[in-house]
Amino acid sequence: MTIEAIQEELIDEFSMFDDWMQRYEYMIELGKSLPLIDENLKTDDKLIKGCQSKVWLNSEMKNGKIIFTADSDAIITKGIIAVLVRVFSNQKPQAILDANTDFIDEIGLKEHLSPTRANGLVSMIKQMKMYALAYQTQLNN
């Protein structure tokens, strides 16, 4: 599936909820399905800075696509990463670099985009794009 198609799917799913509580509950559910980072990869260099909760993000390249795994010590944060991993994992680096993130607004998570929330959604996206850029640069060389 393309990034856009996954984003559309998420917007669809989240549109079923009419209040924030159901959205949060769904996000918490999604968090439980997050492809977890290997315990021995939970090292400080995999930590994303700028989060009040701890977030570890790992990436590897398989058949030209980036596979993300992650974990967090906070559940809501885990749900947010689960959404991001679903969108960006198993995609080509260039597609990740080109993707926009307007869907976050549309699924009602806009408040988490504010840097003052200190939950690091912005930092997570940035980190994913950084990995994509690094892999893309490797491919170009």
């Binding site: 924030w20 949060y24 909760s53 559940i75 809501i76 944060t77 939950n119």
Partner: peptide, 20 residues
Amino acid sequence: IHPYDIGAIVDKLGIAVRTG
């Protein structure tokens, strides 16, 4: 439960507390 999670939910209910 992580304090951040509690803070995020009570904020949704109009309550301003500090977490961290």
